[in-house]
Measured scan of single mutants.
Amino acid sequence: SPEEIKAKALDLLNKKLHRANKFGQDQADIDSLQRQINRVEKFGVDLNSKLAEELGLV
């Protein structure tokens, strides 16, 4: 269901964000992850996106 997909995506992105902060990645990478999280919260996951591929939806 779209809600489950959204939850999985947010979980994955939050893990990536945590790792980025923990290991001191570029601020641009961290900002990009934050924008992705905001986009998923607002609009859900686009099944044509790279994120959908990472989640194994495509």
Rank of each mutant, 00 (worst) to 15 (best):
L55Y: 02
A7C: 11
V45K: 00
S1V: 08
D11L: 06
G24Y: 06
A52K: 02
A52H: 03
R39Y: 15
A28D: 11
D11H: 06
D11W: 04
A7R: 13
K22E: 14
R35T: 10
E53K: 13
P2M: 14
V40T: 06
K15P: 00
I5F: 07
A20H: 04
R19G: 06
I30Q: 04
Q27P: 11
E54L: 09
N38W: 05
V58H: 10
K50G: 09
L47F: 09
L10P: 01
R39V: 13
P2S: 11
N14P: 00
A52D: 02
L33K: 01
R19Y: 15
G56Q: 08
L51M: 06
Q25A: 15
I5S: 05
A28Q: 11
L55A: 02
P2R: 11
N21I: 15
R39H: 15
K22L: 15
A20G: 03
A20D: 03
E3M: 08
K6V: 09
E54M: 10
V45F: 04
D31N: 09
A7T: 12
N38D: 15
K8G: 04
D46H: 05
A28T: 11
E4P: 04
G24S: 07
K8F: 05
D29H: 14
S1A: 08
L55T: 02
A7L: 13
K8I: 11
A20K: 04
A28H: 11
L47D: 04
V40H: 01
I30K: 05
K42C: 12
G44R: 00
E41P: 01
K8V: 07
P2Q: 12
D26Q: 09
S32Y: 14
N48H: 12
E53V: 14
K6G: 03
L33Q: 01
L10S: 01
L47G: 05
K8M: 12
F23M: 14
L12M: 09
E3D: 13
K50Y: 09
R35E: 15
G44N: 01
D31W: 01
N21S: 12
Q25Y: 15
D31H: 06
S49G: 07
E41A: 06
L33S: 00
I30C: 03
D46Y: 02
